[in-house]
Design a protein around this nucleic acid. Structure first.
Lengths: 337, 337
DNA sequence: CTAGGAACGTAAAACGTTTTATGCAATGCT
DNA sequence: AGCATTGCATAAAACGTTTTACGTTCCTAG
């Protein structure tokens, strides 16, 4: 496949009767050309529909007008089209809209650390990395190349790094607990995952604080993220044995679906006897019976913040970061009394 | 911003004690090097972590491993972050998954015909264009540059062009009309957008055919896509004045939400007095009261088909196209009798 | 003993820009 | 008059590859 070439700087130079240097300078406001020459060259270029070739230009280290997006969580899953993981799709869509609105192109890039490395990967102006790991190799490579990046979710173990945006997990935990409280819940159990990430830890802290304020005994359960729906269903047994709380707050959508399923199977009615809420909305939460109330991230606000920070970084300006976004609470049948 | 450069072919050549030509040939299986030299060079390159620079390589016309995605419909909306237009977000997400799964990067590109043209735009290997217009200038530019492309939605007025995938709009319009019919509707109004794309035109054709078959008088309304919810609400006035039909089929989710809102505000009960359906599901449709029945596209199947075709095109192989995908109908409160 | 190939490498041109270093008038200053 | 300065424009180098065209060396057939 040989691409047809467009009009080159040489064509414009010939047409305008000047050197290619003159054309370059005229179009980029460099050098010392007379106003007349500059105007003339511009007119000719405009009329010919000249567009500088990005590749050639990029070869000389100028910005590409494009930023990359690496979805770390998907890389980990190993499957790029996982069923029902719509957080991913929504974030991509939102980031795309936001980038386009700023006149930037957004490029979705597969894992940078596994060959074959996507050819354009290291030629982009900057990167958004979602859910970075501890000592993330993707981030290591970006730093090695001196490519600016921002992260969605705070990079674990990097207190000095501030170029991130994330959901305000403390605020959103409050949102859930307040809702449950106003629906009459006194005792609330928390089911969190086992990954030591900001998501699990932040919610847990807030939960414990809330319990203390309300003089209620904390009931904290840990369930590995990958235990999925079955894990949740199994946990329901323990919940029943140890006394059904007024509400169960599961940080993971699949756990919530499983817990509710397990409770109902054991004759515990939802939402009449106990309520169920999840911290991350998903297809599972929406299609459960009753539908499970959920926190819904705000990928639009998140990606907008990230692009603001990234643009500052690329331009070498100080960035207003970190930035927190607010989740929305979606009340559904599982908490409707 | 000056990017830090990585290891170049020159570094590898020096290290391996050969010419840069040798390195290039060894790594690209060209030329006539001995197996030993080839292996040696490869080993050195591997060990040094050499990755050819995509920009320099692209300058010599080789594939970039990246395809572009132009969302024509978003260009038409004029707003790149329209609230609740989740068809786009879903399609983008799906296309991204599919591209990544094939080892391709996907680049989201703003309108190619309005300056500033995104720098990398004409350096990509191929394009997916969604909802092309009649005589679409974006497509004209791609053809001018000889860049292969596929379209999501058949390009109107181009019977000879086959490199597209689309929802089978005739089938899905049938799906909606049949559903309405079995719910007792005799007279159905169609509200379409003003973009002259296959989506609007195909549904309109099917609708007109259906009216003829059923001896019912067509009632066709055109509303600019960007009129949004307000436009729909305003249209409801006309619908009432001209006689409330048994059902209103709006191709756009936001129009549907507006129409229903406008009807209800004028005392027309939904679904008792008239039903409302939309051709594209959206947040607006789901959160309306009652929730609006909708067609749900299958962006995963669609984008998979498109990438298959595009990869064939890029490789110069014959493509298996066009391809049709099926939409699902989601009955909700607005058509439940 | 030599012409004609293989077999293996490399030099150099090309890709389309940007940038650095000059060149050459014309002008200003002593 | 001679020298520095300014104003304008360009030549050439660089960016990192791929590709074309050319050299070697060595073998083999005549």
């Amino acid at each position: 496949m040989t691409r047809a070439r467009g009009i080159t700087i040489r064509d414009v130079a010939r047409e305008a009767g000047v050197s290619i240097t003159a054309v370059s300078h005229a179009l980029n406001d460099k050098g010392t050309l007379s106003t007349a020459t500059r105007a003339h060259i511009r007119a000719v270029a405009e009329q010919m529909g000249y567009e500088a070739d990005a590749l050639a230009r990029g070869l000389r280290r100028s910005p590409m007008g494009a930023v990359g997006l690496v979805l770390r969580s998907l890389d980990a899953l190993g499957d790029y089209a996982p069923a029902g993981v719509d957080v991913f799709e929504r974030f991509v869509g939102a980031a795309a809209s936001q980038a386009l609105a700023r006149g930037l192109s957004l490029m979705l890039v597969p894992d940078l650390t596994r060959p074959p490395v996507p050819p354009l990967a290291f030629s982009l102006d900057g990167y958004i990395v979602t859910d970075p790991h501890v000592d993330d190799p993707v981030i290591a490579r970006l730093e090695e190349r001196g490519i600016p990046y921002v992260t969605y979710g705070r990079p674990p173990g990097r207190p000095e790094f501030t170029h991130w945006a994330a959901e305000d997990d403390r605020a959103s935990a409050r949102l859930v607990l307040t809702h449950l409280e106003s629906a009459g819940a006194r005792s609330v159990a928390l089911v969190r995952g086992t990954d030591p990430n900001a998501w699990n830890l932040g919610h847990q802290d807030t939960y414990l604080g809330w319990c203390e304020e309300h003089g209620s005994t904390p009931r904290l359960y840990e369930l590995p993220e990958r235990a999925g729906v079955e894990g949740g269903a199994a946990l329901a047994g323990r919940l029943v044995d140890e006394g059904v709380p007024d509400a169960v707050f599961c940080l993971t959508g699949r756990h919530a679906a499983g817990v509710q399923q397990g409770l109902v199977a054991r004759g515990v009615r939802v939402p009449e006897r106990t309520m169920v809420v999840t911290g991350s909305d998903s297809e599972h939460a929406r299609t459960s019976r009753p539908a499970i109330s959920a926190l819904e991230l705000d990928p639009v606000a998140g990606s907008a913040a990230l692009l603001d920070i990234l643009q500052s970084l690329i331009a070498g300006r100080p960035a207003d970061s970190p930035r927190l976004t607010r989740a929305r609470f979606r009340p559904r049948g599982s908490t409707r009394r």
